[in-house]
């Protein structure tokens, strides 16, 4: 009964799904097509080949860029978790002078548009001599206000008894944080981790400014440069292949951990 009644609904949802999925599928297949056939609507072509991927590999050091991106994003994520949990813990569970002030400052900085700080930040990197080093990609992202707030919120709900017991056992605050709190905090660690990772992985504007050395470029950066610079020689196939390579790692990760991705991204909105 219900199946039939819901048929239009399923149909609508499927059409919706097609609208979101087909461009990706089309792009994926187009990367295997010869240049002249790419603009067709269909997926299949008589002579599919991996030439486009081979060309991308020879034209830009995309494998190196992948490693750079991985390295940068992992460093940023680890650091956001580490420092974020420390500060978050202090704000949630310790009483000290200026706590409320720091909290207010954090909340305030979250509404400051990054447009203001973009150019001074670039100049700061120049003055530190960090342009064209990993430092310029990692250090400015090492702490994330939103991460701190998420940690604070989570740590506030941990029962005080646990902490008191640990203190009686002679744990200092760092030990409490990493021995007691961290094992309890899997959900918030995953959420903050995914948000930090995604933010760092997908960022283009900042790497475009601070990295000029091809060997240090991140993957989104090198693909952007490839798509609008001259290296693709106006060939669509290679541009799409580069884009596919850029999308692949995240889509693969996503397909394994969809639930976490969706929950984390959603919480980025809800917890405000």
């Amino acid at each position: 009964m219900r199946g039939i009644k819901n048929l239009p609904l399923y149909l609508a949802l499927t059409v919706g799904g097609m609208i979101f999925a087909y461009p990706f599928v089309w792009m994926f297949f187009a990367t295997f097509k010869p240049e002249m056939e790419i603009t067709g609507i269909g997926l299949w072509s008589a002579d599919m080949s991996i030439d486009n991927y081979r060309l991308v590999m020879t034209k830009i050091p995309i494998a190196r860029a992948l490693l750079n991106s991985l390295f940068v994003s992992i460093c940023v994520t680890a650091s956001v978790l580490f420092w974020g949990s420390i500060v978050g813990y202090a704000l949630a569970r310790l009483k000290f002078l200026g706590r409320e002030l720091i909290l207010a400052v954090i909340l305030f900085t979250m509404v400051i548009p990054f447009q203001i700080t973009l150019i001074p930040m670039y100049i700061l990197m120049v003055k530190f001599g960090w342009v064209d080093t990993y430092l310029s990609l990692i250090v400015p992202g090492m702490i994330n206000s939103f991460g701190i707030l998420l940690f604070r919120q989570f740590f506030r709900d941990v029962p005080q008894d646990l902490i008191d017991a640990a203190r009686l056992d002679g744990c200092n605050e760092f030990q409490i944080l990493f021995r007691i709190m961290w094992p309890l905090s899997k959900p918030v660690l995953i959420t903050v981790g995914i948000l930090a990772f995604m933010g760092s992985w997908n960022d283009v504007l900042w790497p475009l400014l601070v990295i000029r050395l091809e060997t240090l470029m991140t993957m989104p950066q090198i693909v952007t440069l490839f798509a609008i610079g001259g290296q693709a020689e106006a060939q669509i196939g290679v541009q799409l292949a580069a884009a596919t390579l850029l999308a692949a790692p995240i889509i693969i990760l996503y397909s394994f951990f969809q639930k976490y991705f969706i929950e984390s991204m959603a919480s980025s909105g809800l917890k405000n």
């Binding site: 283009v204 996503y254 991204m265």
Partner: peptide
């Protein structure tokens, strides 16, 4: 899916 993929792609 499009949410997680880079804007460049």
């Amino acid at each position: 899916m499009p949410v997680i993929v880079s804007g460049v792609v």
